[in-house]
Design a protein around this nucleic acid. Sequence first.
DNA 1: CCGACGGTTCGGCTCGCACCGAAGAGTCCC
DNA 2: GGGACTCTTCGGTGCGAGCCGAACCGTCGG
Lengths: 234, 234
Amino acid sequence: MSRSSDLAALARLLADDTRARFCLALLDGRAWTAGELAALAGVSASTASEHLGKLVGGGLLVERRQGRHRYVQLAGPRVAELLEGLVAHPEPVRERPVSLRMSRVSAALARGRTCYDHLAGRLGVAITDALAGRGLLDTSAGFALTGEGVDWLTGPLGVPPEDLRSSRRPLAKACLDWTERRSHLAGLAGARICDRLLANGWVKRVGTHRAVAVTPAGTEALRTLLALDVTRLQ
Amino acid sequence: MSRSSDLAALARLLADDTRARFCLALLDGRAWTAGELAALAGVSASTASEHLGKLVGGGLLVERRQGRHRYVQLAGPRVAELLEGLVAHPEPVRERPVSLRMSRVSAALARGRTCYDHLAGRLGVAITDALAGRGLLDTSAGFALTGEGVDWLTGPLGVPPEDLRSSRRPLAKACLDWTERRSHLAGLAGARICDRLLANGWVKRVGTHRAVAVTPAGTEALRTLLALDVTRLQ
DNA sequence: CCGACGGTTCGGCTCGCACCGAAGAGTCCC
DNA sequence: GGGACTCTTCGGTGCGAGCCGAACCGTCGG
């Protein structure tokens, strides 16, 4: 509430092209006069004065009056880091990633099979989280497995290496879990993990639906393999 | 130019209170539907839809259509860090911070620069210090030049005596140096010293602005004239 | 004291944009 | 297929904010 208006107020300081120009110029760490900044940005002295008033008032700049000059400077290294972080923000990709947009047919197919061969729900998310420290990368483009992750699958978990080779299916894929509202691991790796847990009797199906439950043996195995305590999943 | 408009465009995404609310809610890492966010922010579904279009288009969020729902999520951990950095921005302090850490570039400015028409920064202060034993008095009322000091200017430094006569401008004056937090020599004498050093090629301007650097010839000259080793200023 | 200069304040103009409601498209469930 | 639901698109409205020029103030130098 108040935090959101704070965030918006701070962002509003940088949302103007002229003020953004000022701040980028000041990123060199030096102090500039109001007139220099006005000339740089191509605005009148009065406009620059108003902008500087806002930037100083918002804590992004500090000022120092000396004689008839008004020197301004970035308020500190934190502000510089903030600006650099914003400037470094990558351009959004023009075309939408394929995995995010499904055709009608594949959507229907996804609906029927969603989470069918891999684990979902709190258990799926918890396993995904536990894997995040063991070779599963959560990138903005989706999930990816490192060599360490593959070694974990073929080693401790015991997935035959040839089962991880597939002509077309991606190894790791993010699947949005709509009870948890977070992504869980899908793709070939997700399916193989589910295979192993079922085959080892660590997880078994409940009833005719897709619900699964962790067995006592599975609880122990997950604690050993992933330091995951499934009894705390509620 | 293009970087400043990029920065402004990105900041503009967060400059609206409603969009800021969305982003803060999404900071929990989960995926939210458009309707949930609309209700949270207290705006209509149509308004929320437009906002989400901008946030996704700007690369801050990624979306995932599932059925009739539109799930959105922060685009990645980098975006989350960016947001946290912004909300962590401290309220502007009324009084100026005691010391500002400087970037590499501002360090150059701290080393030497001109202030109006005289030298400032570490170089200006060092020259002032060196002159203190050669006819510059540092009194409680400010700086003053003795006859010895005037002789040094017109003799070894080579300032034409008539250039030291001015109807009203004080010969020696103290100017507070904002990087060194000490006074350096200003006034007519300070200006003439700066003139000579520039004219002799002992100091030259760096870039288009006020930063200056001592040349090799200047290093030698200052050692001879003032027993000042400028290589130790850094 | 005067002129030059840097910066500020103020009135007024214009344009962008956040907002809504209504209509429409797509999806789900019965 | 029908009805409920979610989201999107599209006019239309009103407020906020950036911009300028003119007048003004304080400082500097002669």
